[in-house]
Nucleic acid binder design. Sequence first.
DNA 1: TATTTGTATTAGTTTAATCTAACAAATATA
DNA 2: TATATTTGTTAGATTAAACTAATACAAATA
Lengths: 218, 218
Amino acid sequence: MNSLTEENYLKALFNLAIENGEVSVNELSKHLQIKMPTVTSMMKKLAEKKLVSYESYKPLRLTEKGRREAALVIRKHRLTEMFLVEKMGFGWEQVHEIAEQIEHIHSPEFFEKMDELLGFPRFDPHGSPIPDKTGKMEWLHYSKLSDCKIGDTVRLAAVTHTSEDFLKFLNARELKLGLKIKIKTIESFDGSMLVSYGKHSSEHLSGLVCERLLVEKE
Amino acid sequence: MNSLTEENYLKALFNLAIENGEVSVNELSKHLQIKMPTVTSMMKKLAEKKLVSYESYKPLRLTEKGRREAALVIRKHRLTEMFLVEKMGFGWEQVHEIAEQIEHIHSPEFFEKMDELLGFPRFDPHGSPIPDKTGKMEWLHYSKLSDCKIGDTVRLAAVTHTSEDFLKFLNARELKLGLKIKIKTIESFDGSMLVSYGKHSSEHLSGLVCERLLVEKE
DNA sequence: TATTTGTATTAGTTTAATCTAACAAATATA
DNA sequence: TATATTTGTTAGATTAAACTAATACAAATA
Ligand SMILES: [Mn+2]
Ligand SMILES: [Mn+2]
Ligand SMILES: [Mn+2]
Ligand SMILES: [Mn+2]
């Protein structure tokens, strides 16, 4: 059984490896805010447990076993976030920190029950897919809002950042998942947009915000 | 902030000190299944934090601060058990182990929300009182079933043991909190009883079982 | 009271997870 | 290519929480 610490390393490796499957010690160190020598020694330990393939000076890579165990921690995290929002009445901006702790509870029954009570949801409150019990996760064909063109009408499908500040910012503008958004203008020099959605006929979104919103083109 | 380990020591001290407020290193060591030298050194640490009053070779005693912090951990434990039973559909025999982990989550909002959704319950699924937010806990005037007399009619109010085995044993006999129980006979040599309750007109309960059932006399 | 038994402490070791300082390898730059 | 910078590793220290072995104290018993 993996410790809380090991689970956090696995999760970080999984999330950082989305693109090419490779992660550097440096990246991981920065992401976890843990110094490089500590990361190196944990990688040796996880390699010992066959969760990571590690060779000196080579990029890190989760093994199949490591990928599965990481996905199962992420499953617990996302089910928890969904439960907190759907069954306990928390806002989507409040749940990440709590889930960060509950994801380490060791009790298959507990998460099974959550899953069941939620009706086996496929996405968490921020639009991220929930891995299944075998650790498989379907990756979706979303685009960043910042990559869309003037005139496009898109549906807000997910957010890539889950900090309380950012989500409160979206709350204040009534930007929720599922909303239809129309792009009116794009400022090419800073990537900011003027968009309309719901009752909001003209909202200005900075380039940074547009980068963090994932949309589905209709 | 107290670590998970410290929280477990505080809780154990609180539970063992119910009678006279004093606990020996030996008792605590046995209860936690941790060797005495480890307990001694943790007591010094908790004394440093003003949670325990410790002098060599003297009995251990929680300070007022220690008592309050212990009660707040127990509050988290019992609210969790209640939530698992009432809101998630677990049986009372399944919840202790999960609560043993969730009691260490650091999030006032999470437990506030549970409390609220449960309608501010005063007892957990095993009949134990839930301390309030300030750490106060009302202790009730229950008797052991084993201390009752032939002919007494009592209401099952709480159980003093929460192991899965014991609670499954009670489930099998449909013994639930709130039931009215009538004592038909008592075997003086082993303390076992013949009782009737609900649809059960004549059930035999061993002395051990009778010791673990707390009842309210009518 | 002297001795035995049980309880508690001290001293020193272990493991997990972190750190800093020093050094080595790989990569980027001049 | 030579040098500088960035990245990664090694060595050694630290802290929390556990352990064992040895020793000291306290309580019970002879
Ligand atoms: Mn999250
Ligand atoms: Mn976490
Ligand atoms: Mn319990
Ligand atoms: Mn616990």
